[in-house]
Design a protein around this nucleic acid. Structure first.
Lengths: 347, 347
DNA sequence: CTGAAAGCGCTAACAA
DNA sequence: TTGTTAGCGCTTTCAG
């Protein structure tokens, strides 16, 4: 009489290894490995046996072991200051999209505009020995710069080209963007100009834009008539508040330059709500060209920061697909286009 | 006479290993390892020698080797459908923030709402043997579900609680959110109601919201009077267009429910531009509670989706800090609050 | 407190 | 076409 067997206790779930697939399929580990990576010639029969066994077991390869053995890692570190900014998610989308068919995988890290956090994040990421690094900005702590220089992999600094890159760089000149906006404003006949921006000493790009802007005004013998900075809160709401405050303080201003489109849009809505004559009595401009705002009743003048394309180009360089023939040290300066919208007087 | 030596040729840059630090400091690899990980007792003298050598050389540990040896990986996989949505960056921010002091590192992957891409991304991520997975939604391909179930690590499905979780779940009931919005609208006296949303069959949460909404209307014997879906483009602009189109087609509508705040804001701006009486003649509501819109002249009624908190709670579960004492299988349902704003009539 | 030995799971290189 | 051997750079374990 058959003794009833207790059900086989489920084994403590140890992750499956190549060896398990090897045993299940009766094929050597090495050949299993070859099948799973599509490397080398394997007979169709063997291949199918292996594939069936792997799928049946639910095997997921261990890339940690693979990377250690092959000294190859399909990860690309992407380090950005913030996710709240709307700008960076777009860059990430460009990177993500371009990397999709390369076998490379982006890994994101966020620094909150803190050089210390940037250093920590880079250290952490480099310790995974990625195939490349894409990092926002040209300003890094000494230690971070040293790490990047010594990493021995492609480094692409993005967003900004005003400075000394470590290796490759893809971005726009914020200095120039600011200057050109100033020229356009001056050319349109505005003279009493205010600046509204974020209070972020560590946002070097915003700073460079403002410097370029002031330089552009200076060419025409002008200087900023007023300025105001904010931090935190909803950008749209801040734009309203700051605009109101500035115009209360300096009612004779005839132009407001905002360091980003969101506060610009807030300011624009406020001006419209007040019934101010835009762009006749007062002109407005922002920066970034976020298409998020396309549906506003009046289009804010802005300058496209080429965010998505920056992500794409950077990804291409890391993937070795830039087509330049260069091996590192590339420099791609994109040109932001002025989008005059409806908030600058026509010349 | 000293023969002039040629300068030492710079060695081909091989990544530094523990062995290099060991040799430079005259301490065994094992002890160097202990110092670098703050494990076990090491004399102060030895520690300092090692630290000095490591810093001097610019040593960056190899986590791949470390992870293989220790069978521990400090990575948490975070898989989301999109970065363009504004919602997900906020969730990421919550995750990122909470993980900051745990020694865990988020790694993000994007699926573009495609189940196939989700499966591929999960496979890729699981092959790095992360400590946990945070994934948006409860709907996955069979293969993806199987992978997650077999991974043997904490899995947290987020955003949505309407369904069968694999392990833990943190989110809101979109079904309920839709129903409650419907009830609020009906209670405020609106009767001819239109729905405007994204044409995304794979956005299950938007679908559930609409289903809940219709169920809520049905309780009052009502049905949607009109509906329209869009895809692509700037949400704000789409909101304007769709609103105009819908009101042209169904001029007798007295309420518009939008599947997200951005198109809702577009619609609101259009209505205001037309001089329509909001919320008297027509009411409006969106979904998400994005504070981005705080600066609009009129506050759109909406419902907070608790995005940041979802990220935080999910991260806590993965980090084993949820405080529930549970080991897996947690269920956290957050309650979205109705924010009536200025676009629903007061009762 | 410090060191030596033995792998982690996989792949490069070579052999059959 | 397939299998064998020897590590990848680190940590675990155990012995001084």
């Amino acid at each position: 009489m058959p003794v009833p067997q207790p059900p086989v206790p489920p084994e403590p779930r140890r992750p499956l290894t190549l060896r398990d697939v090897s045993e299940a399929s009766g094929v050597s580990e090495m050949t299993v490995s070859r099948v799973l990576r599509n490397r080398g010639d394997v007979s169709v029969a063997t291949r199918e046996k292996v594939l069936a066994a792997a799928k049946g077991l639910g095997y997921v390869p261990n890339k940690i072991a693979g990377a250690l053995a092959s000294q190859r890692v399909n990860l690309v570190a992407v380090v950005i200051p913030s996710l709240g900014n709307l700008v960076f998610p777009e860059v990430l989308a460009g990177v993500s999209e371009t990397l999709e068919d390369t076998g490379l995988q982006p890994v994101f890290g966020v620094t909150n505009y803190s050089p210390d956090r940037e250093e920590a994040v880079l250290y952490e990421m480099l310790s995974w020995r990625p195939s490349g690094v894409i990092v926002a900005g040209l300003e890094h702590s000494d230690a971070a710069s040293a790490m990047l220089r010594n990493a021995g992999i492609p480094i692409v600094e993005i967003m900004d080209v005003d400075g000394e890159p470590i290796d490759s760089v893809v971005g726009i000149s914020h200095m120039r963007a600011g200057r050109e906006m100033a020229r356009a404003i001056v050319a349109a006949g505005y003279r009493r100009i205010g600046f509204l921006g974020t209070k972020m000493p560590l946002d070097h790009r915003a700073r460079k834009r403002m410097e370029g802007f002031e330089a552009g005004l200076a060419e025409a013998g002008l200087a900023l008539a007023d300025r105001e900075f904010y931090s935190g809160g909803s950008a749209l709401a801040k734009g309203r508040e700051m605009t109101q405050a500035m115009l209360a303080r300096s009612p004779d201003l005839d132009f407001l330059y905002y360091s980003n489109d969101m506060i610009g849009a807030g300011g624009l809505l406020w001006c419209l709500g007040q019934g101010l004559d835009v762009p006749g009595k007062i002109g407005l401009a922002g920066f970034n060209g976020v298409d998020l705002l396309d549906g506003l009743p009046v289009r804010l003048a802005t300058m496209d920061a080429c965010r998505r394309e920056i992500g794409q180009q950077a990804a291409k360089i890391v993937a070795g697909q830039s087509g330049s023939g260069l091996i590192g040290g590339e420099r791609i300066e994109l040109t932001p286009r002025l989008q005059p919208g409806d908030t600058i007087r026509k010349a």
